[in-house]
Amino acid sequence: MLGTESQYMQYLFSGLTLGSIYALIALALVVTFNITGIFNLAIGEFVTIGALAAISLREVGCPNALAYTLAVIIAGLVGVLMERGTINPARKASVLTLIIITIGVSIALRGAALLIWGTHPYTLPAFVDAAPLSFLGAVLIPQSLFVLGLAVVAVALLFTFFDFTFAGKAVRAAMMNRTAARLVGINPARLSLFAFAFSGIIAALAGIFITPITTATYDMGFMLGLKGFVAAILGGVTNATGAIIGGVLLGVIEAFAAGTLPSGLKDAVAMVVMIVVLLTRPTGILGQR
């Protein structure tokens, strides 16, 4: 038997873990969106590629750290290839066309993942082999701490980059006003390339960190990518902090919905919350009205 407080504590823990992943994906989406004006619907495939590439590299004998680093680089390169091959040539097209292009890329990448890795689910070992921590009757597995930590570190690094480096300031300028940024000599094509590489890297990291908890399959990215979108909307698409908060909030909402309502309705609850936020605060929970 488990008391109500312990139950709620447990929902909070599991919501925070998943929420951190949603947050990272949302972060990657928001940065890309603000630099390029494109919502990259292939973001989930980057998560898949990161996780599965890491697994394959470990299998061929790479030490963990090397395998993870290489996998992240591979995902970043896929991002670069996608930008050069499909986004850059179509940069003059309408937003709708660009959305469709990213959908096409995600279909092709998913097919490629199916070809390379099959339908078999894979897993990675937890980063440390420790017993679950107990807190107020609720349980937190150590890997969750790594996932939470990754989210915190990613945000910290991002802010450092934006506030203290020249390149970061350029990106921020471009996010605020693309035309003005171009007028002062910031190259939008290079920024777009950077955005896709960055989102590949962040998404791959998210994939690698969560695989010990959730396992990895060729189609894992699809739902994660979708959730990342919802998170980005909740937080307001123009705002990196908002993306993080939106992600965590979505994770917590899902866990509480599954815990307190008939669990089949969990995804419906998430969608209703998103639509309500869209209708009442279209700029996200953090945005100005």
Partner: peptide, 15 residues
């Protein structure tokens, strides 16, 4: 698998 890959690629090309 190849059917899916080609489907995706053809779409990107059309667009």
């Amino acid at each position: 698998e190849f059917e899916i890959i080609f489907f995706g690629i053809i779409f990107v090309l059309i667009m």
